[in-house]
Write a protein that binds this DNA or RNA. Sequence first.
RNA 1: GCCGGGGUGAUGGAACUGGUAGACGUGCCGGACUCAAAAUCCGGUGCCUGAGAAGGCGUGAGGGUUCGAGUCCCUCCCCCGGCACCA
Length: 742
Amino acid sequence: MQQDYQPKNIEAAAQQYWEGRHAFCAEDKSDKPKYYCLSMFPYPSGKLHMGHVRNYTIGDVLSRYHRMKGYNVMQPMGWDAFGLPAENAAMANNVPPAAWTYSNIEYMKTQLKSLGLGIDWSREVTTCKPEYYRWEQWLFTRLFKKGIIYKKTASVNWDPVDHTVLANEQVIDGRGWRSGAPVEKRDIPMYFFRITQYAEELLQGLDTLDGWPEQVKTMQANWIGKSFGVRFAFPYELDGKQDKLWVYTTRADTIMGVTFVAVAAEHPLATRAAQDNPALAAFIEECKHGSVAEADIATMEKKGLPTSISVTHPITGEQIPVWVGNYVLMGYGEGAVMAVPAHDERDFHFAKTYGLPIKQSIAVKEQSFSDAAWQEWYADKEHGVCVNSSKYDGLNYEQAVDAIAADLAAKSLGEKKVQFRLRDWGISRQRYWGCPIPIIHCPTCGDVPVPDGQLPVKLPENVVPDGAGSPLAKMPEFYECTCPQCGGKARRETDTMDTFVESSWYYARYASPQCATGMVDKAAAQQWLPVDQYIGGIEHAILHLLYARFFHKLMRDEGLVQGDEPFKNLLTQGMVVAPTFYREDAAGRKQWINPAKVEVKTDNRGRPIGATLLADGQPVNIGGTEKMAKSKNNGVDPQAIIDEYGADTARLFMMFAAPPEQSLEWSDAGVEGAFRFLKRVWKAAHDHVEQGIVTAYRSGELSAAAKALRLQLHQTIAKVDDDMGRRKTFNTAIAANMELLN
RNA sequence: GCCGGGGUGAUGGAACUGGUAGACGUGCCGGACUCAAAAUCCGGUGCCUGAGAAGGCGUGAGGGUUCGAGUCCCUCCCCCGGCACCA
């Protein structure tokens, strides 16, 4: 053993040793209890960033700790390999997305290995390979036959110049990112997963997830958004025909305060009203501009235009005017809403803007109503009682809703209804670099799923997209086919699936990654699932984690897996943040400067008083501390840290600089500190080589630094195993991290 | 706009159920060792006033409850994550 700490040699030797012994292979047959530790797999963007290093280090500490406690540990890794960035890189460099993706994977794999992670590489999965996505296609055809997958039209962002569908991310200030043209909404047919059929179960299941952070469960519950309300209709007569305008409300108690109804621009009533109203037609046209993103719609100015149509109030029989509102969404509920300006804040402001009547129908004791300004209590359903509501006067929320729902039901104009905010999951993407949707369109037989024997539908890999529509739709060799049912000429679907589909079941594939006879090997799945510890960023709290929970239930209902939930424990790690520095150019734009190129001056208390660029010695501005990102140029390349200090320094720093759930501020000094600490450890281990490293820690000569380290590491370990004594936990965890020293 | 989280020294963060705010780490300052530097070790370090003793102020802002508030309540500001086609 050398006395000097030379991480490069030590780590390389250790990694070689592990590889030679297949040290991290999970055993499919074992008497030991299993521990499945999963970190969210990376998108192969090119190289690892600090977020990856943090994520995988946390997972690795937990994995090694459990391995030492005698568990049969599985810590797998794979690649979320389909997605938009590969197409962008393809266009920029004229390289097929496949080639770009595979070379990124190759490089990032060497990086992961140099981090010394205890990964079972024999289980690696890559989602863009047919061996993986064929099972996704297989499941799709099953679900299509069951009716869990269905087709309907939905709005997308359309770039009228590039003639292509844009992702929300590609719409900047209402314009296409490449063409700069104002974006339009366009309705196209898409395939949907009927996730709403599982809404109740997805909601109930949250109660069983004791190992999940409350915050994530709350977000999912709110996203699913179960509400108890009333669906009812406003009857009307138009062009000599009787019809009904349906709406849904959770505030049926305010029904006597309705002063108008608003419909979406795409609503049939709006279309009809626009026939003899050019101004309205122009407004409806205007509503087609802008993105389909909910954040954009919710923050834009609420606009509306009246129609000449009116409908009949189902209780009072009054005539109620119909308006068209840009804030009413067609694909959401009934595409129409009742408006009660007195008791809904958005309706209140809309009514004030357009001079519509405001009619109080709820009162709260000792509060006086005025239509001059909105007050919080106007929407209070706990303390309010009905007023100006004839026979409902004096009833509270529940009584009023019951009475009104009963009266509506008696007239066959409505009833109580449970509704969810959750919408069905549209998975069609008009993109090349994704899993082909296994459907064949036959003029005679309609949409026919591709038979098992013809799976997988392989995506051609030598294609460079040009940014104008899907390349697959221009490739007859891909789309020309015959109908599996009637043998006639047919056309293959050219849309691909949302990449969230691949990431919704990869955790299950790791149990039997090479299984050629099914999506999963049932025995292997039973042995390994559920995931004991899942680790990833909080940004996945809703979509990915909800879709994966949904998929688990779909696979369960296909008899592929057991249990109702895929992830027993969830740890959402914090971001890695770093200071930012900038200079303003002549146009006043900020030019971000990487922290590595900046020297910060401090006063004699260590407080920053200014910063200068190392290259020219001139001052730069100190920005805020933000998430490491290209846009702020404040990233630190993990490779540079590994090269200079070794992976153990990077890992040690990340583990002790902040608790895993919280954001971690990058600090060069902290890295230096971790490095110095390891040097000390190395020396101590050298001196105590006979007794081993744990003894060296206990010897006391490292106590000050070790105490701090224990505190931080403990917070990770305690998540998993509360009953362990602190000292023992600490020593085991440290030893696990320092395994290579023994 | 809506949902979730956050704001405590220069800094990452402690503070359990309302009871000594700032544990522990980093940084910084001072000292020891050294020809010197690095490394290591020891001490100090919320802010203001003061030579000191000591005093005053202090947990995003404002208000409230309480003998007592970082913690509970109300209003507001700012930051972060998500908002269904980024992953």
